[in-house]
Design a protein around this nucleic acid. Structure first.
Length: 714
DNA sequence: CAGGGTAGCT
DNA sequence: AGCTACC
């Protein structure tokens, strides 16, 4: 076993000749390579592709479905179907009507709720990860695994007399004609692939295909060559065969619609065209890196590493529909999407820092494509509601935030027609023990916490400990996997919902609630959220709103930026100190610095019609059409009347007013509870009663009043 | 493209 | 924030 290095050298020449790998070799098996100048990079990559994944999951849930033609339906299309249905001509992404026509017996199961698929998907990835740490997900049903190290270890243990033979198919070779001895690593790769497929089948009941090759591109391409439940190895000598077999450029992973079109414009139609196309000309159209990459892909060359996917970087929920034309419908849809998303987020355990709302508008031309989104930071107090499991509270507080974003894109006073709404949490921060020894599990997610770039997990483990301990033991044979299987079995039966797609990096169980964040939450909460132009009432006191409106947006944004208002507020504060003695010295008052008369809010909420509230009611009109000039808003925002009825600064009154009444009520009580941390001066000179009537006086608000404009509405 | 997700680059 | 890509 000591001579493994020698064997590798020989092997190296073989694969190295097979294609040009222009990129600098990765450190790969450098540790075991003995050649002085040649760094060995003979990677062995597996690609797993589960058979008709959604259909399999449904057939596991209801075994009776195994014997009937089954289609998984999302809206009006069959996203996938089992092989019984395929025999009758049903295909993926076929419309329901076409499918029923082909196969009247087709049994349909709704597949819009991805929960079960997602859970099963993560179990597969988790299982693979337990054997080999370098696993990259591609969608819900595919995984890449870099097994280079595992292969090298097995090779080192392989006895001289070992008889090499491939498991499964070998691309373009008939069965047993291959001199397997020439490709020991790929043989071992095929054995490992077979074991992993068997593990997936025995512990999860899923079948799938695998491709074994020397890079991701090739592994993926070859995995599909024998379709259900089989595996195929691609030898380096057959790379050009498989690339040449592709019917169009679009079949090359990495070449999408747009790229294909641009290539076509250059007269590049097939893979061979691209292989032969002068790189220089390609560079002119695509730029250096992309041009080289495209050419490489056409040649079957792909040096991209298998990157550990880890836990998802965002969670989203969406729904599409034929038409949505009122903000009422939108609000209800957003609420329902939020409910499930918040639940999922809670189970994940991490705390989202960013919320995004995206829409798709209908238009006769260009009906598809064209999504618009707006995002904003999530105030910490809401984030904590999510992680702590106060889901309803979280939804209630997120709803106005979402609607605010909605109205940044959709003018509620004009006609609109939406066909999709999506809600998304991102910038997911691990919560956990404040101090994490870098020792174990916690270090796993501490990496993702900081910068954000999942480590590339360069193929050869930099951290040998992670591999050696576990992998070596479970490396050898299926028998050693039994332990894992039972673990997984227990896992799947006992954990049901709580564990969900729990990786070790999931870390959700560790709940170290950091109460001290309250202080910092306030600072984080505010200023960040605003970039819109219509908020002249947010302006620093020394800026004329009329002038402001005329400024370029960049400048406007700068004026509104935290940095600017910070510096400004400190000066203002000192100058205002006498005027408004109760203003706190820090800006921590933010989330709740804005204030509003509670009776006004209540009245607006209830759409009362008393003359007293008539003016306030104007704000409920369609945004932008309000007959009430912004002074009114400013005015209201500038005069907190009563200490027990603060209106949080990040809430847009107009949005608030369109929320369901019960949500308004809930929000109000929330805010009251939060009130203790509000640092807004509670005692104004003016008794609140005068406020509602005397708008003009308020409108002429002094500098002191203007200060409140920092505590931005909307 | 459909559909309900994802991720990375710009 | 949008585009492109992947499933």
């Amino acid at each position: 076993m000591d001579n493994s290095a020698d064997e590798m050298e020989e092997d190296e020449t073989e694969w190295q000749n097979s294609f040009v790998d222009p990129a600098a070799p990765t450190p790969a098996a450098a540790a075991t390579a003995s050649g002085p100048s040649i760094t060995k990079t003979h990677k062995i990559i597996l690609h797993f592709d589960l058979d008709c994944f959604y259909a399999q999951v449904e057939m596991i849930r209801n075994p009776a479905l195994r014997e009937v033609p089954l289609g998984i339906q999302q809206k009006y299309i069959i996203v996938t179907c089992n092989y019984v249905a395929r025999e009758q001509g049903v295909t993926k992404l076929m419309s329901v009507t076409d499918a029923k026509e082909k196969c009247p017996e087709l049994v349909l199961v709704k597949g819009e709720d991805l929960t079960h698929y997602r859970e099963m998907s993560y179990k597969v990835t988790e299982l693979l990860t337990s054997y080999c740490p370098l696993v990259e997900r591609l969608g819900f049903d595919e995984n890449f695994v870099d097994i280079t190290e595992m292969v090298e270890r097995r090779l080192a243990q392989t006895v001289e007399s070992h008889k090499f033979s491939f498991k499964g198919h070998v691309y373009n070779h008939i069965s047993a004609d291959v001199q397997a001895g020439d490709h020991p690593r790929l043989v071992l790769g095929s054995e490992i692939a077979a074991e992993l497929r068997e593990a997936i089948h025995s512990s999860l009941g899923l079948t799938g295909c695998a491709g074994i090759a020397t890079n991701k591109l090739l592994a993926k391409l070859v995995s599909g060559t024998f379709k259900p439940n089989q595996q195929t190895t691609l030898l380096p000598e057959n790379v050009s065969d498989i690339m040449g077999s592709l019917s169009s450029l679009r079949k090359v992973p990495g070449v999408g619609h747009q790229t294909a079109k641009r290539l076509q414009a250059l007269g590049i139609i097939g893979v061979k065209d691209l292989q032969l196309f002068p790189l220089n000309d390609l560079v002119k159209e695509f730029g250096g890196p992309t041009a080289q990459r495209l050419k490489n892909l056409a040649l079957g060359v792909d040096d991209s590493p298998v990157t550990c996917t880890g836990a998802p970087q965002s969670l989203s929920d969406e729904d599409s529909f034929k038409k949505m034309t009122s903000t009422q419908e939108a609000l209800e849809k957003v609420q329902q999407l939020l409910s499930s998303l918040v639940e999922r987020m809670h189970k994940d355990g991490r705390q989202p820092q960013t919320f995004r709302l995206t829409i798709r508008r209908y238009s006769a031309t260009n009906k598809w494509f064209g999504r618009e989104s707006r995002q904003c930071p999530i105030p910490n107090h809401i984030g904590l509601k999510i992680t702590s499991g106060s889901s309803e509270d979280a939804v209630v507080q997120l709803l106005p935030v979402a609607m605010k974003l909605f109205h940044k894109m959709v003018d509620g006073s004009a006609a609109f027609h939406l066909t999709l709404i999506n809600v998304c949490f991102s910038n997911l921060q691990p919560r956990g023990p404040a101090v994490s020894g870098k020792g174990s599990i916690t270090s796993f997610f501490s990496q993702s916490t900081s910068p954000r770039k999942t480590q590339t997990c360069s193929s050869q483990c930099q951290d040998d400990s992670c591999q050696s301990g576990d992998s070596r033991l479970m490396d050898r044979h299926v028998g050693t996997h039994i332990q894992h299987k039972s673990q997984l079995a227990m896992n799947s039966t006992s954990s049901s919902k709580a564990t969900l797609h729990g990786f070790k990096w999931k870390q959700s169980s560790v709940v170290a609630v950091e109460e001290n964040q309250k202080a910092s939450c306030s600072t984080a909460g505010l200023n960040t959220t605003e970039t819109n132009s219509t908020k002249t009432h947010l302006l620093p006191p020394n800026v004329d709103p009329e002038v402001f409106k005329l400024l370029p947006e960049e400048i406007q944004n700068e004026l509104l930026s935290p940095a600017y208002s910070d510096s400004l507020s400190s000066t203002s504060k000192s100058s205002l100190a006498t005027d408004v003695p109760h203003i706190p010295k820090n800006k921590s008052s933010q989330p709740f610095t804005d204030s509003q008369n509670i009776t006004e809010v209540k009245k607006a909420a209830n759409q009362l019609d008393s003359s007293d509230t008539a003016t306030a009611m104007n704000h409920q009109g369609p945004p932008g059409t309000s007959a009430v000039p912004e002074v009114n808003i400013t005015e209201r925002l500038s005069f907190p009347r009563s200490s027990d009825c603060e209106f949080p600064g990040n809430v847009d009154p107009e949005v608030f007013s369109e929320l369901p009444l019960d949500v308004q009520r809930e929000l109000m009580s929330e805010w009251k509870q939060q009130k203790p941390i509000l640092k807004v001066p509670s005692s104004r000179k003016q008794p609140r009663s005068s406020m509602s009537k005397d708008r003009k006086a308020a409108g002429k608000s002094s500098q002191a009043n203007s200060l409140f404009k920092y505590f931005k509405p909307t």
